[in-house]
Design a protein around this nucleic acid. Sequence first.
DNA 1: ACAGTGACAACAT
DNA 2: TATGTTGCCACTG
Length: 126
Amino acid sequence: MTINFYEQVYAVVRRIPRGKVTSYGRIAAMLGRPQAARAVGYALNALRDKQDDPAYQNIPWQRVVNSQGRISIVSPDNSPNRQAQLLREEGVEVSEHLKIDLDVYLWEGLHLLEIDDIQSGSRLVD
DNA sequence: ACAGTGACAACAT
DNA sequence: TATGTTGCCACTG
C-alpha cells in the first residue's frame, strides 16, 4: 500500500498517551502542514473503512478533538456519543456538552526527533 | 484530469 | 455565546 499523509497521521495518533487528547489542527501542524487540519479529520474518518485490517484496529482515534476541545463526531440523537464514552473510560472528563478541558487533558505533542522518525519512515509522495 | 467531499479552523456577524 | 462564511487540504471516483 502507498505511504501517504494518512499514515503519518496514524503514526502521530498512536503516540497520544492514554488520558490525553490533541486536536486535528495540532496534528497537522506537527506534520508540518498547519493548514491540513481538515485532511487529518478525513484521515481518521477513513479508519472506519479499514477496521477489517488488524493494522488499523488499535489507533486511539478518540483522543483527537477539535481546536475548542469539543468532540466533532455527531452521533444520532438520543444515542450516547461513542467517542465521549471511550474517553471517559480512560479517565478523561467529558462534559455533557461533549467538551474537554484542554488546560487539563491536552497532550504536549511530539518533539522534533520523533517527528523525524515518523516522516523518515513514511514520506509523502511528491 | 478535475470536481466533490469532510471527525477542521479562523473570522465575522 | 451561537451561527454562518470562507479558506484549506488530501483523497476519491
